[in-house]
């Protein structure tokens, strides 16, 4: 095992083209990094790259112990808690953007009278309305993963999703996260069905006619300086009173 390398940031992989050098024994560092856009890409475990070697080694050791215990009692929740705990460690510390203060807009009317909007970073769109990504009309999920570095340098496109869209017409392409759960049930991060149910109870006035989604793995400065203010104007034009935002 090699010594700990400087802590790299997640998402600095080469887009999946890196292959182990067969003439050299693979180091543990290379092994754990290979889950983040490398030869073993698995976006649920890409966080391993951000962990120092000793912590990543502990992750695997404890994981195997817990798998063994789970084989005997079937209590898989210890596996979820284990992954969650190391996931949290990997993202500890501040990000690139810090501000001295932040805005606050109070509610202007009661929730029960408000038009509620939804915006997610999940990369959802409606079948037949696929956004052009990186200049390509039909980006596949596999290619989106492979080209994650290109996504991180490009401004995102906002998709508009009618809120009555049935789940079978929702599609997702996003190279930055494990999309298996949203494929199984979009409501884990794009909760249109849950919001329709809650609107029917009268908890809020109404759901805005369209939800919004974009690929959150994108160039940050164009988003912050240009697109986000433009999107805010779109929401104002639609007379939306409050927004639920869900990042993945």
């Amino acid at each position: 095992m090699t010594s700990s390398a400087p802590k790299p940031s997640i998402g600095t992989g080469d887009g999946g083209t890196q292959q182990p050098d067969a003439s050299q024994p693979e180091s543990f560092t290379a092994f754990k990094n290979s889950f983040a856009y490398g030869s073993r890409t698995d976006l649920l475990f890409k966080f391993l790259k951000a962990l120092p070697d000793d912590e990543a080694a502990d992750f695997f050791k404890e994981l195997l112990l817990k798998v063994g215990a789970t084989l005997d009692d079937g209590d898989w929740s210890r596996l979820a808690e284990h992954i969650y705990a190391y996931n949290e460690r990997s993202y500890a510390g501040p990000g690139q953007f810090a501000y001295d203060d932040g805005p606050f807009a109070p509610m202007t009317k009661p929730l029960k009278d408000s038009r509620l909007g939804l915006l997610t970073t999940t990369g959802h769109f409606v079948e037949g309305d696929k956004p052009e990504m990186l200049g390509e009309k039909d980006m596949s999920q596999e290619e989106a993963v492979r080209r994650i570095q290109d996504f991180l340098r490009a401004p995102p496109t906002l998709s508009m999703i009618p809120c009555d869209t049935p789940r079978e017409n929702l599609r997702v392409v996003h190279g930055g996260y494990d999309t298996r759960a949203v494929q199984a049930d979009p409501n884990v991060a794009l909760p249109l069905e849950r919001l329709r149910e809650l609107a029917a109870t009268g908890l809020f006035g109404e759901l805005a006619p369209e939800a919004f989604s974009f690929t959150g793995a994108c160039a940050q400065l164009p988003l912050r300086n240009k697109l986000a203010p433009q999107w805010a104007e779109i929401l104002k034009e639609r007379q939306i009173d409050a927004m639920l935002l869900v990042p993945v």
Binding site: P103, L152, Q220, P229, A242, L245
Partner: peptide, 26 residues
């Protein structure tokens, strides 16, 4: 990255006068 992206969007929407709430993993 998605979370920082949503941070930019939340600040812009809020600055435009629309209240926001972010629901996310800890």
């Amino acid at each position: 990255m998605c979370h920082v992206s949503v941070g930019h969007v939340a600040r812009a929407i809020e600055a435009a006068g629309i209240p926001t709430v972010v629901a996310m993993s800890r």
